[in-house]
Design a protein around this nucleic acid. Structure first.
Length: 881
RNA sequence: GCCCGGAUGGCGAAAUCGGCAGACGCAGCGGACUUAAAAUCCGCAGGCCGCAAGGCCGUGGGGGUUCAAGUCCCCCUCCGGGCACCA
């Protein structure tokens, strides 16, 4: 026992006390854990009829193996690890896996730079990061590790691809694609941010025409949208972002017949292009040319106000029209150029509207009028039908365009009030008028209908007459998955002269990525330069075939990796559906908000595809999602260019893994950004030292004592009360808010209370049984946040068994309850005094105590108490005059 | 432009349901221990006035509701994120 007699508290025993030395404790436990490969292994699903423990699948997003963990990772994993350990202690069967998102461009860049093969580079990075994770003491079951760049994994990407191909969900078409010159590959729309590459913020994305493989995400657009309503375990922010991304809009498609130019009236044929600024009435000879233009509109109710059609420069009909009109071709060329430029610079919203009249007319199927057909740079070829009816009076963009070119405006919708009193005021000042809570005018048989009703009726009318119908348009596109890269999953397709596109037979999977491929900066797929890879045999006819040389987008890998964890070594299927049925959905998924749309929409899509293949029963991959905040330093995101990167290795070397992890939880609530301050880590480390010394000082008392003591002596009562209040707080937080910062603060407070009783503990005034309870529970409460020190102290207390499976402490409301309360007393809302009353005191007692208080008595002297407000257990407010 | 967050001491933050603003920690100051330092321990600590008792002010700004507002309502400023010619 250490000398502890000083009147100055614990001052004197410090000198000869054991020091907290994480550099010694942590590697030792790391070895002990490493020697038990099953330590973090989940139990198998119970057999039918058996009732096992409840399952809990906690998952953190798998990292890209860059070679170095950064603080964002540490924070992400500290959250997941605390939760996993807590759930273990709560008696759950926990699946807590980790893997590597191991394909991707940086490996090729590294190959170029250091002449290291991508595979070697990647695998050595994985080894390095795995060491860091182990050093952090994270509770992953490495027996379920998934590495996406290994054939054992990516063969199932290929297998899924073939299943999708067979179901028509994977298809090939030529399309304009986003091309990043830096990556020398195609990017999905999702990977283009303000016209720039998501990996290269300074690189403008170009448009190229290429044959590409697509997955039909649009088949699931509606379901992906509807599913969001049920995902109440996901942050509203993420759901909103996905809703915006899917971008559903209801409207109608309407076909406009093109007028045969030969039937235009004689006198019109000499008109200049400005003829195109006015709607012309139908004439007897009007005849359709056979060409049709479909437009998509959300405001079919305004169709009588349409005064032109506007085509996207890339619209199919524009090609026909320009073929016979060189002057037009030249002008359209300019429009395309403007649009391209705007898209590349990301200023699509700010581009100056330009357009050109084609000289042709289309016939409005509702009014039979002839509308001039234009080509305009503000119309997008890849949304809706690539053509619109322009209603300048009721659409801001059309209004702006029409004003510029002097195109006619026609008011067909007005506020109810205006229509009902038939005012003839200057209605033009209203324009553009876009409200839908309005009535139709100048719209033939549809006059006086409300907009919304008119939309339904007019769509029905269009359908009846065969030139349109109500329809829904989505912003979400099919997922382009082809990449002209080496380091990815080969797309398992063959091209045969005779049989066309043929999938690689399943028994020939995986299509192995050839190991020795020269990586160069020239464009096109590196695999195309490997004849042994390209040249294959057609499985149908046995003749020569050419292998697809593109690889898959790496978001394919991460779309289903978490299913593989449940059955990582399966060599005959991606996974055993029974295992997935047991573990899914993921109970808690944790990662950065930056994946709110890309990864998380693709994953939701993939899950539905697997469901429709009969492999899984769940619709959604994850029941709950948590998005943690960024780690910043000095107000800015950590980045090499800013030079404010803090290395986890440094922190661990200086303060230990426990302190580093715990600081990541302590410095801010997990959903908010965290400002990394090294002094704060030192503070947490000091706290752990205090805990360590406190437990070591009294461990001898606790060792061997197993009493359940609930000590009735005053000292025990006070200490146990604090203990049970703390258990209650942390237990409730794990089940709800996840404010681990205040959980750790609560443990600090508790330890402060305990150390203040140091002498009473040493002297025996606090019974040994109480001491044992305090120390044991302190260690248990620390276990999810600081596993090393917790295990060390658990052993020092002589406790048997694995701390990971030790039951989480139960709180006892009776013990947590205060028997006396301090009740603030306010006068007119201002604090004037505090009185102590019994916890169960009734309102009268509290009032009397307040009025009897000396300070209060003095303050209300000569005044009238108008009202007394008593909030039981909270405060008293006296309203005085 | 639209939609979400956020703004609280010197700093990170707390206040979960409208009820003592600033828990916990960092940095700081004073003290103990020490030949000295480190480590540790004890104490002080929102601002202003005051020897003190105490008083006044205070949660980005302005208004409001209430016995009582960081918290609810209206208006505004700044910061961060998402979407943005999507017909």
């Amino acid at each position: 026992m250490v000398e502890n007699r000083s009147g100055e508290g614990a001052a004197t025993h410090a000198a000869d006390e054991v020091r907290y030395n994480p550099a010694e404790i942590e590697p030792r436990w790391q070895q002990i854990w490493a020697a038990q490969p099953d330590l973090y292994a989940a139990e198998a699903a119970p057999k039918p009829g058996e009732t096992g423990k409840p399952k809990y699948y906690v998952l953190e997003m798998l990292p890209y193996p860059s070679g170095q963990l950064h603080m964002g990772h540490v924070r992400n994993y500290a959250i997941g690890d605390a939760l996993a350990r807590y759930m273990w202690m709560q008696g759950y069967n926990v699946l807590h896996p980790m893997g590597w998102d191991a394909f991707g461009l940086p490996a090729e860049n590294a190959a170029l730079k250091n002449n290291t093969p991508p595979r070697e580079w990647t695998l050595s990075n994985i080894a390095a990061m795995k060491r860091q994770m182990e050093r952090l003491g994270l509770s992953y079951d490495w027996q379920t590790e998934v590495t996406t760049c290994l054939p054992e994994y990516y063969r199932w990407n290929q297998w899924f691809f073939i299943q999708m191909f067979n179901k028509g969900l994977a298809y090939r078409r030529k399309s304009k694609v986003n091309w990043c010159p830096e990556c020398a590959t195609v990017l999905a729309n999702e990977q283009v941010i303000n016209g720039r590459c998501w990996r290269h913020e300074d690189t403008l994305v170009e448009q190229r025409d290429l044959e590409q493989w697509f997955l039909r995400t649009t088949n699931y657009a509606q379901e992906l949208l509807d599913g969001l309503d049920k995902l109440d375990g996901w942050p509203e922010k993420v759901r909103t972002m996905q809703r915006n991304w899917i971008g559903r809009s209801e409207g109608a498609a309407v076909e406009f017949a093109m007028e045969d130019p030969a039937t235009a009236p004689e006198d019109e044929k000499h008109l200049t292009r400005h003829a195109g600024t006015h709607v012309l009435p139908a004439h007897d000879d009007v005849k359709a040319s056979g060409e049709k233009v479909a437009v998509f509109t959300t405001r079919i109710d305004t169709i009588f106000g349409a005064t032109s059609l506007q085509l996207a420069p890339g619209h199919a009909l524009v090609k026909t029209l320009t073929a016979e009109n060189p002057r037009l071709a030249k002008e359209v060329e300019d429009l395309i150029e403007q649009q391209k430029k705007a898209r590349e610079t990301g200023d699509i919203g700010a581009i100056e509207k330009h357009g050109v009249f084609t000289g042709r007319y289309a016939i409005n199927p509702f009014s039979n009028e002839r509308l001039p057909v234009w080509v305009a740079n503000y119309i997008l070829a890849d949304y809706g039908t690539g053509a619109i009816m322009s209603v300048p009076a009721h659409d801001e963009r059309d209004f702006e365009f029409a004003k510029k070119y002097g195109i006619e405006m026609r008011i067909v919708v007005l506020p109810r009030r205006t229509v009902e009193v038939e005012t003839d005021g200057p209605q033009e000042t209203l324009l553009p008028y876009t409200e839908e809570d309005s009535l139709l005018i100048n719209s033939g048989d549809f006059n006086m209908l409300g907009c919304v009703e008119a939309q339904h009726r007019m769509a029905a009318y269009a359908q009846e007459h065969g030139f349109g119908q109500a329809t829904v348009s989505f912003r979400l596109k099919d997922w382009g998955v082809s990449r002209q890269r080496y380091w990815g999953t080969p797309i398992p397709m063959l091209y045969c002269e005779k049989d066309g596109i043929v999938p690689v037979p399943e028994d020939q999977l995986p299509v192995i990525l050839p190991p020795q491929v020269e990586i160069t900066q020239q464009g096109g797929s590196p695999l195309g330069r490997v004849p042994e890879f390209v040249n294959a045999t057609c499985p149908k006819c046995g003749g020569p075939a050419r292998r697809e040389t593109d690889t898959m987008d790496t978001f394919v890998d991460s779309s289903w990796y978490f299913y593989r964890y449940t059955d990582a070594k399966n060599s005959s299927a991606p996974f055993d559906p029974a295992k997935v049925a047991y573990w899914f959905p993921i109970d808690q998924y944790i990662g950065g908000v930056e994946h709110a749309i890309l990864h998380l929409i693709y994953s939701r899509f993939w899950t539905r595809v697997m469901r429709d293949l009969g492999l899984v029963k769940n619709d959604e991959p994850a029941a709950r999602l948590f998005t943690q905040g960024m780690v910043i330093k000095g107000g800015a995101k950590m980045s090499k260019s800013k030079g404010n990167v803090v290395s986890p290795d440094d922190m661990i070397a200086r303060y230990g893994a426990d302190a580093t992890r715990m600081y990541a939880l302590f410095a801010a609530p997990p959903d908010r950004d965290l400002d990394w301050q090294e002094d704060g880590v030192a503070g947490v480390s000091r706290f752990l030292g205090k805990v360590y010394r406190f437990v070591m000082r009294h461990a001898a008392i606790a060792r061997g004592v197993t009493a359940q003591a609930t000590g009735s002596d005053p000292a025990s009562q006070q200490l146990l009360r604090k203990l049970h209040q703390t258990i209650r707080k942390i237990t409730q937080d794990f089940g709800g808010r996840w404010h681990f910062n205040t959980c750790i603060a609560a443990v600090m407070e508790m330890v402060n209370t305990f150390t203040a009783a140091d002498e009473k503990i040493a002297s025996g005034e606090v019974p040994p049984a109480t001491v044992a309870v305090l120390l044991e529970n302190l260690v248990l409460l620390l276990a999810p946040f600081a596993p090393y020190i917790a295990c060390e102290l658990w052993q020092e207390l002589g406790r048997q068994g694995d701390l990971l499976r030790a039951p989480w402490p139960q709180f006892d409301e009776a013990l947590a309850k205060e028997d006396e309360l301090e009740v603030p007393v306010q006068l007119n809302g201002k604090l004037r005094s505090v009185v102590r009353v019994a916890a169960e005191a009734d309102q009268d007692t509290i009032r009397d105590a307040a009025l009897a208080d000396e300070k209060i008595k003095a303050a209300i002297e000569g005044k009238e108490v108008v009202k007394v407000i008593i909030v039981t257990g909270k405060l008293v407010n006296l309203v005085v005059k």
